[in-house]
Amino acid sequence: MEMLHADGIRKTFGNLEVLRGVSLTANKGDVISLIGGSGSGKSTFLRCLNCLEHPTGGEIRVDGDAIAFRPDGHGNMEPASKTQMRRIRARLAMVFQSFNLWSHMTLLENVIEAPVHVLGVDRKQAVDEGLRLLQRVGLYDKRNTYPAFLSGGQQQRGAIARALAVQPLAMLFDEPTSALDPELVGEVLKVIRELAEEGRTMILVTHEMSFARDVSNQVLFLHGGLVEDAGPPAEVFGNPKSERLARFLGSFH
């Protein structure tokens, strides 16, 4: 079942053509890793999917719901209906490189914020569910702690709990472990791996090649604003078709 579909996404910043037609289809349970060099447009593509960045062209469909676009007056497209956009965003949970937990809220408050205030879930029910999710990512004891008092790994696991709380149709991860000290990477990857195993639909931008190889069922290699190589991880990593991909993978050894 198709959860997320992006077709021919283009994005230019001024004269800089960052995406030149990138497409992707995520069916339920797919884990798709986006890899590519720095500046290849991975983050930009991910941010176009939930319109944090206005795409210049292309189509996006979430759970069969095609986002209606109109010109935004700056050469790009903006969502024509804010209501539709909010509805879609609420179910496309994003996990950021720098966590972005809300600093004035405790971990539990962070987790129940979107369910209560965006989705209109009953507060008590949201709290029960929030506590369950915090338990699951190993942060039940930290439920009343403010983000500034948590380690990076704990903050990121909290951010994953916050994302899970909206019962996302698909989860978007933008280099979730890049801002972490090496010894904290493992605890976050472990949580993400569990999510992959339970059949969550995920799009994952990452520089963790062996992890991408392990958890994903599809890998996209972005270069020059295009998908230069794509396929199952065994193929992409084991037998790269493009010279550039081979060189890119080589740089990790």
């Binding site: 909010r86 879609i88 950021f96 720098s98 809300w102 205030h117 965006v118 916050r162």
Partner: peptide, 18 residues
């Protein structure tokens, strides 16, 4: 206020007012 916190709010579907 770190911009990321405001982006996170948008990413979770909050309106400008919310």
């Amino acid at each position: 206020v770190p911009l990321g916190q405001i982006e996170a709010a948008q990413a979770f579907g909050m309106s400008s007012w919310l």
